[in-house]
Amino acid sequence: MKIDIISDTHFDLHLDKDSLENTEEFLQKVFIKTGSNVLIIAGDLGHFNSQNIAILKLIKELYEYKYIICILGNHDYYLIDKIQEKQYERDSFKRAEEMRELINAEDGMYCLDGDVVEIDGIRFGGCSSWYDGSYFHRTSSSYGRNVITFWKQTMNDAKMIKGIEDFYDMFKIQREKLDVIYQQCDIIITHVNPSIYDKDMPPSKRDDKMNAFYSFCGDEWLDNTTAKYWIYGHNHVSYEYKRDRVSVICNALGYPAQLKDFKIRTVEI
């Protein structure tokens, strides 16, 4: 099976959220017909659910994917303005649930949330996952609430995600979902890098306390998973590392300025 990989599409940052005009032109800069039946999107689709589903349907049609498998990222929980706050009653989880329902209602599309889907004998497991602050603790003498203060000072997540006290709330939810899937799949998909070690970071991201919010200490899952591939996003890079027999891959599109350097990544299993 050939599988294409992308994450961090951020559709509304590349396109007008209220129109599909220029969408096909944009997609031509991102996708090519690789002959893959499956496309994996490892989170951060965009800030508007209606736009996200419309573009996913178009991708599936134009690039002849039989299946699209997604998980949600941190931006897929954002309520970015007063209109969205009212629409979803200041509850980011309502927006995320709506996005999953829209995707899962489409034939051949799956938005995984602590579950596994099997396609042609290959089992795909996924969840958003979340960062846990561990990198900050590993590299700093500051502990406890100081990392929360740092989070509130540096991350839009602290302002845009409604319904949580801090990032630990999200991590607790997501670790339970990882527990369910990590020994049940051949390919695991999360939004966040499952390693806090600099050797597993892109060179440009090493020795940076911000990795506290771009990684989690996933040793217990990564070292014992049945998966051959672990696909993640969040870091706007193309990068791969190995953990024993597991290939861990990020292939993020990112923001408009990063579009020119993007190439779709294909793996075979």
Rank of each mutant, 00 (worst) to 15 (best):
E89C: 03
R123L: 02
M160W: 12
E118N: 12
K94F: 10
I80Y: 05
Y88L: 07
K172A: 03
Q184D: 15
I164E: 06
M99L: 15
I187C: 04
C70L: 13
C185H: 04
I187F: 00
I71H: 00
A105N: 15
F136P: 00
I148N: 00
E97I: 10
M160V: 05
G144P: 14
D81H: 08
K172E: 13
D91V: 10
D132N: 14
R175D: 09
D157S: 10
S142Q: 12
G73S: 08
D115M: 07
K94W: 11
R100F: 10
Y77M: 04
F93N: 07
I161G: 03
R145A: 04
D157E: 15
K94A: 06
Y78T: 10
I83R: 06
D166P: 00
I188T: 10
R123S: 02
V116R: 01
G73N: 05
Y78A: 09
M109T: 13
G125N: 11
C70G: 03
A105E: 14
F136A: 01
R95L: 11
I187N: 00
I148T: 12
R100L: 14
T149N: 13
Y88A: 08
L112A: 02
I80N: 04
G108M: 06
A96M: 12
H75N: 15
L102Q: 14
S129F: 09
A105Y: 12
K94L: 14
G133D: 02
C127R: 04
G133N: 04
S128R: 15
E106C: 13
I103A: 05
F93M: 11
A96H: 10
G73H: 06
K152A: 04
N104Y: 13
A105C: 10
S128Q: 14
M155Y: 09
G163R: 06
M99N: 02
I103Q: 02
S134V: 05
H75D: 13
W130D: 01
D186Y: 08
E85I: 14
Y77G: 01
E89R: 12
E106G: 03
L72A: 05
S128E: 14
Q153K: 13
D81W: 12
F171Q: 07
N156F: 11
N156L: 10
D179A: 14
N146E: 15
K159H: 11
H75V: 06
R123W: 00
F150R: 08
K177A: 07
R90C: 08
K177M: 10
K162R: 15
M99V: 03
F171S: 09
Q174N: 13
D120I: 07
R90T: 07
I122G: 08
V147P: 00
D91W: 08
K82V: 05
G114F: 12
V147I: 14
I161K: 02
M109R: 08
C127E: 05
I189Y: 00
T149W: 07
K177C: 12
Y135K: 12
F167I: 12
L102I: 09
T149A: 10
L178P: 00
D186V: 07
I187Q: 00
M160G: 05
A96V: 07
Q153F: 05
R90W: 13
E165S: 09
G133P: 02
F167A: 02
L102F: 08
S134T: 15
I188N: 02
G163V: 09
R138C: 07
G114K: 03
G114I: 03
D120V: 07
N74P: 00
N104S: 09
G144V: 04
L112W: 01
D179G: 13
Q87I: 14
C111N: 12
V147L: 11
G133R: 00
D169V: 03
Y135M: 08
